[in-house]
Design a protein around this nucleic acid. Structure first.
Lengths: 191, 191
DNA sequence: TGTACATCAGTGAACGCGCGTTCACTGATGTAC
DNA sequence: TGTACATCAGTGAACGCGCGTTCACTGATGTAC
């Protein structure tokens, strides 16, 4: 081999990470294969040495985005007092910082409608990734038992994704903050 | 004139209504000018006799979608006992029927990320349309005064748009219903 | 009353462009003999 | 030890295709004289 043993794996990871950012920022259609490759320091042609298709990359990139989201969540959770992990997650999710940085934020808010429209094969794969994600975050949700935690998770996820989705459509900064803060305050006092 | 006096206005409206459905179903990029025109019984070339650009159509189509949404809301509200209008809206919004019919549903859930990514000019115009929409629905929101109604509206809108957004990504029908019903039940008992 | 011209919603071919994908090639390295 | 060949990550031009937009044209009607 001309390169280090894991050279190809590293390159692949670099492409996925760049794609994860660009898909969130520009959409699953908006971000192009050529641009992703260029931002990874490569040329278009090499793409198919790493992925079978753009759909393949979409799946890998969203998996990566969910992983990054989970990493952020868990690091926030560890800073919070025991049993209050969900509060840290809610605060982080509804922060202006998360709202304004689509490229590094939650892929579900950034891509929900496009994921819903995906081909059945892609959609099924992504649904399974999101289910996994939810299960890993479940332990930090409020509630006296698993069933209650699961219900609360659904309510919390709906409220926070909805709030960020709405806030991002806003052009008036005051309204944007009002959405984020109103939902945050309500959620923090409701569980 | 060869046609009735309002012929052109009627044609324009027909194009907008078709576009409103197709944008919600296929996205602001996904739906094409040629397809919209064809579904309105016309050919591509005529498009620019009615609109300055595709962006122009996007704005008109979303305005139309919001109007349709409001019509649905108001017809539900009139069937509900006084003061419980918001409950009727929540039930309608979180129904399986609304969730599964993207083409005739709420444009904010169907298009949020694409609207957020729009050019500043388009985004500003749409933000103003959505503000108008919210103001017209405000009177039916729960709360003892306008300020409380406004806060509750933000929470309700976030929760219902988030829930439908998440439910539409689900491939498992059981999970989809679980999301819609859990959020509906929680909201109905929370105000 | 008749004729020439203006109007204008709608047609359909053509345009330039960006996209995902394919493919023959490169060139540095490892391996067989 | 030296040489010929295989491997394979990456290159860059080319492909077919669909898109938004433009444009010369059509043809039915209204209007001017």
């Amino acid at each position: 081999m001309r390169y280090e043993v894991d050279h190809k794996a590293k390159t692949r990871k670099r492409i996925i990470r760049k794609a994860a950012r660009q898909f969130r920022e520009q959409g699953l259609e908006g971000a192009g294969v050529a641009t992703v490759m260029k931002s990874a320091g490569l040329t278009v042609g090499g793409f198919y040495k790493h992925f079978r298709s753009k759909d393949d990359l979409r799946i890998e990139a969203i998996a990566e985005s969910l992983q990054e989201l989970r990493d952020t969540f868990l690091s926030e959770v560890h800073k919070a007092p025991p049993g209050e992990g969900w509060k840290a997650i809610v605060r982080q999710y509804l922060s202006l910082e998360h709202c304004e940085n689509v490229a590094t934020g939650c892929p579900m808010v950034a891509l929900a409608p496009e994921i819903a429209r995906s081909s059945p094969a892609v959609k099924a794969r992504l649904a399974s990734l999101m289910k996994q994600h939810a299960e890993q975050v479940l332990p930090f949700m409020p509630g006296r038992n698993r069933a209650e935690q699961a219900r609360n998770q659904i309510v919390l996820m709906s409220a926070v994704t909805g709030a960020v989705g709405l806030a991002r459509m806003e052009t008036d900064q005051r309204r944007k903050l009002q959405i984020l803060n109103t939902v945050r305050d309500r959620l923090l006092e409701s569980f």
